[in-house]
Structures are given as structure tokens and as C-alpha cells.
Design a protein around this nucleic acid. Structure first.
Lengths: 96, 96
DNA sequence: AAATTTGGTTTATTTTATAAACTACTTTAT
DNA sequence: ATAAAGTAGTTTATAAAATAAACCAAATTT
């Protein structure tokens, strides 16, 4: 694009952006918490977390809390950088 | 979404957002000009302009300048409102 | 007069997003 | 003890979107 900067397609998705936004402001968050805050379905959330994890934007740990599975996510340095770059790129769409 | 506002899917697309951003700052713009400024291919641009026009976000007029076709676009009141609402919604992803 | 360019549109392909179905296990009620 | 319902997800299938490629009609250039 000539005047508008590229928007990282991984972040330019409503749900993934919400996930990242949330993880930006918190040290870590559990699957269920993210699900509630974003209003996503479990299936969709699972898929999108995978994509973010595969890109190295978030770290995901799976353990057991008592007898239930517990998935915890946190943003990585790389994720923070990508998020910040996305914000900068977005600005080129709103100058004026 | 609980904490994050819906992002109008019609605007949450890199190319359509660029088109709208551009049309926000100008009274009208020609197909070729938009194509250059956004870096889009003609085919993609044609399709996306159609979608914006169908939604009533932009007006499109097709005439002939001399012997060549000339497609001119301008944002509508409705388009301006949608754009502004999108900006407001986006902000919920960047508070903090 | 053949080849290229201009200004597009249409169709096809790929990618994404989303929903629906399923798994594995736990808790609650009967 | 067992059936029903709930939790915490994953996997698979479907729908929608983005994009590229092919095409069209006319004009211009070589």
C-alpha cells in the first residue's frame, strides 16, 4: 500500500485483537476468563489462541487445576512488539 | 463481546478501511486514484467498492471522460457515520 | 495491423472466521 | 450406582471474505 501501512493479518481479526488487547494489560489469563471477556465461543477461541501461539505472539500452558484442565495464556515479547506495530500501522488509516 | 465493542465487518478489512479513510478526507475520488493510493489490484478494488456501495457507505458514479470509462466514488453520510462508529469501537481495544 | 495500455468486471481460488459436533472428564441429582 | 448435566476444551465442517487470475471493450502506440 502506498499511503496506508500493512496491518498484520494475524492481529487484524476482531477476536484475536481482543485477546491480544486483553493480554497486553494482564500478566496472564485463563481460557475461561478470556472466553468471558471476549464473548467468544470455546471453539473459536481455541482456534484463535492456537494461531497466536503458533506465531509466537502468546505463550500457552496447559496443566491441571485439581482435576480440571487449565489453559493459561500470556503475551510474549514478540506479541507485544507486534501489537504495538499494529497500533502504529492503524494510525495511518486515521490521520486526518 | 463483553468488553470489546463489535467492529463493523464491512469496515474491518484493510482495503475497505483504506478506501473509506481516503474518502473521508476528500470530496470524491476516481477509481484509478484510489487504486494507486491503496495499492490494490483493480479486481480487488472493484469488488470492495461494490460492497461499500451496496451497504450505502459510498456513492459510485460511472460515466465517460472522453472515451474512457470513469468511476468516481464519494463517501455518504451513512458511510461517515459508520466510519466514526468504527473508530469509537476500535478504541475499546486500546484502552490501557 | 498487431501489440500494448487503460479502465475496469467477472469468475475462480485461497484463506479466514465461525459454528457445530465431539471428547474426556467431573459434579450433581435420583 | 447411575443417569443427566456441566466444564474445559479440541476437531471438523461450513460459510463468508479476500485476493488473484482471467477476461472484456475500447483506445493508443509501435
Amino acid at each position: 500500500m502506498a499511503d496506508f501501512k500493512e496491518l498484520d493479518p494475524l492481529l487484524h481479526s476482531q477476536l484475536r485483537l481482543a485477546i491480544m488487547s486483553l493480554l497486553m494489560s494482564v500478566e496472564s489469563a485463563e481460557f475461561v476468563y478470556i472466553k468471558e471477556k471476549t464473548g467468544a465461543t470455546a471453539g473459536n477461541l481455541s482456534v484463535q489462541l492456537d494461531k497466536l501461539a503458533t506465531a509466537g505472539y502468546i505463550g500457552v500452558t496447559k496443566e491441571f487445576k485439581g482435576k480440571k484442565p487449565l489453559t493459561t495464556c500470556s503475551i510474549t515479547k514478540r506479541g507485544i512488539e507486534a501489537f504495538e506495530k499494529y497500533v502504529e500501522s492503524l494510525k495511518t488509516y486515521f490521520k486526518n
